[in-house]
């Protein structure tokens, strides 16, 4: 952990601030959320790394999806993700969001969350223990450090594709597109 290195703070303040102030929106879709209270309370105390839960997506920059994702919750997940300000990082928690987990053959559960929103990292396990969350966070720090946690940029770049996938699955969405569609293609072409 390089939180106390003043030289780094002066060199790249944005990156360092993003690393050490991860305010998390926990999207509690399933059983995974049961592991989060130990993470944020006295036993493991995530706050010492600057990770605290926040109440609304506007205030956070870390989006944690803790559990299986049904079609109905996917709407809310997309909506919440789009309401977070950039830069934002998404982490899938547990095996359900990765590949459906024990709901692998359910007609109503998403098997690939990263088709619909970009995901920066996964924490595997059913369910992962709190230690795994911290390992995930240190990995995320490394990714931020190396500019590899750029899901929000990917979302912007390939917004047409993501929106297409979303509409293919959910039908017509009842909110307007986040980015003007078509712009991304032009940028890529140029």
């Amino acid at each position: 952990m390089d939180r106390n290195k003043i030289g780094k703070w002066l060199k790249q303040p944005a990156k360092m601030a993003n690393k050490y102030s991860l305010n998390a929106v926990y999207f509690c879709t399933g059983c995974g959320i049961i592991e989060i209270p130990p993470v944020i309370t006295a036993r493991w105390d995530a706050e010492r790394f600057g990770i605290i839960p926040v109440a609304t997506p506007r205030q956070g920059n870390l989006f944690m999806i803790t559990g299986y994702v049904s079609l109905k919750t996917l709407r809310a997940i997309i909506r919440t993700y789009e309401q977070m300000p950039d830069p934002k990082y998404t982490v899938g928690f547990g095996s359900c969001p990765i590949n459906g987990g024990m709901y692998w053959d359910s007609y109503n559960t998403i098997k690939h969350l990263d088709r619909y929103i970009p995901v920066d990292g996964w924490i595997a396990g059913c369910m992962p223990r709190p230690e795994a969350v911290f390992i995930g966070v240190t990995h995320l720090w490394t990714l931020i450090e190396k500019d590899m946690a750029n899901g929000y940029l990917r979302y912007r770049e390939h917004y047409d594709q993501y929106r297409g996938n979303q509409e293919k699955l959910l039908g017509k969405l009842d909110w307007p597109p986040l980015y003007a569609t078509g712009i991304a293609q032009k940028e890529i072409a140029a």
Partner: peptide
Amino acid sequence: DNYAAGAA
């Protein structure tokens, strides 16, 4: 575009 816990 307002916070409503993910709902419209």
